[in-house]
């Protein structure tokens, strides 16, 4: 069972969280109306082996959105921080 170190609540089971995909991508501004830019953001994802930054929300806890660094080949979690603090903290 993946265990996630929530910076607010401590280490918790991943079943308390929801996953929301790649956190390393930059979301286009709403002012951008170019379909291809949005298409690539919404539909195209890398599937990297190794360290990956991803969004998780502690839905059954503090409700905070976190960025988690997880190694996709070993499922080990190195660190997590509040997403509101930015891409790397």
């Amino acid at each position: 069972m993946l265990r996630i170190p929530c910076p607010h609540c401590g280490v918790r089971d991943y079943t308390e969280f929801r996953y929301a995909g790649d956190a390393s991508k930059s979301r286009p501004s709403l002012e951008i109306t170019d379909v291809k830019t949005w298409h690539d953001h919404v539909f195209l994802f890398d599937n990297p082996k190794g360290m990956h930054q991803e969004y998780w929300q502690h839905v059954q806890g503090c409700r905070q959105w976190l960025v988690l660094e997880r190694d996709t080949s070993t499922n080990t979690v190195s660190r997590a921080w509040f997403a509101r603090q930015g891409k790397s903290s």
């Binding site: 979301r27 969004y55 929300q57 509101r84």
Partner: peptide, 17 residues
């Protein structure tokens, strides 16, 4: 209800903090 709440929190915490 749950989906929308989570979505609003996502936007407020990650996109427009």
């Amino acid at each position: 209800a749950g989906e929308v709440m989570s979505w609003l929190e996502f936007l407020l915490q990650t996109v427009w903090p």
